[in-house]
């Protein structure tokens, strides 16, 4: 529908790129659609049933869950951020509203955030230069809000050598710079 519209990634590129610093890789992901899905008061049963039916996971605090097409992580009591492939779910709210009806408040969040996938050995050493998350100890699937270089960032641990970040889109370049500097100090 919006084929004629050219998009820019949060970093200002035509297409998402990967930055490599030594053994560390920072990949911008512009193919993740994101929405906040919040429980409306008193709608607990309808909300849970709708989520279960549509396959929207509702992980508990400090956790993320992945699935097809929907993944999710907990952000605040009674609210989750739900992810889906951008190609199929660009207007993610239009997909989710029929699912939840009046049981949820749903808001598009895709372009509010820049998404970075980080990979490389010893991610703990990298992340401890940026935030206070005890990455060595938390399990895979851990999700939390944390601070990196003054920026509020959601951090999702996806494996021993894989972390996904959602940072404020307008500060994508500043966040990337912080990631690069920290990686360079280890490389």
């Amino acid at each position: 529908m919006a084929d004629a519209w050219k998009s820019l990634t949060a970093l200002g590129h035509d297409t998402a790129r990967t930055v490599t610093v030594g053994p560390y890789r920072i990949t911008e992901r512009d193919d993740v659609a994101l929405a906040s899905v919040a429980l409306r008061r008193g709608q607990d049963q309808a909300f849970a049933a709708a989520a279960a039916k549509a396959g929207v996971p509702l992980p508990p605090p400090l956790q993320s869950a992945s699935g097809t097409p929907y993944g999710a992580f907990w952000v605040t009591p009674d609210m989750w951020f739900v992810t889906a492939p951008f190609a199929s779910h660009e207007d993610i709210v239009a997909h989710l509203k029929p699912v939840f009806g009046a049981a949820a408040s749903i808001t598009e969040q895709t372009d509010a955030w820049v998404c970075f996938d980080l990979s490389g050995p010893a991610l703990t050493a990298w992340m401890e230069r940026l935030c206070n998350v005890d990455l060595a100890v938390v399990p895979d699937g851990y999700a939390t809000r944390t601070m990196m270089d003054h920026l509020g960032v959601y951090l999702l641990k996806q494996g021993a050598d894989a972390v996904r970040l959602f940072g404020p889109r307008s500060s994508a370049q500043s966040l990337l710079h912080a990631l690069e500097v920290a990686a360079a100090s280890l490389a």
């Binding site: 429980l39 409306r40 008061r41 008193g42 609210m79 598009e108 969040q109 372009d111 404020p168 307008s170």
Partner: peptide, 14 residues
């Protein structure tokens, strides 16, 4: 605390 209100920032989304 019992108001049915959900809020989220969309400053950067648009």
């Amino acid at each position: 605390p019992d108001m049915d209100v959900q809020i989220i920032s969309t400053t950067e989304a648009w």
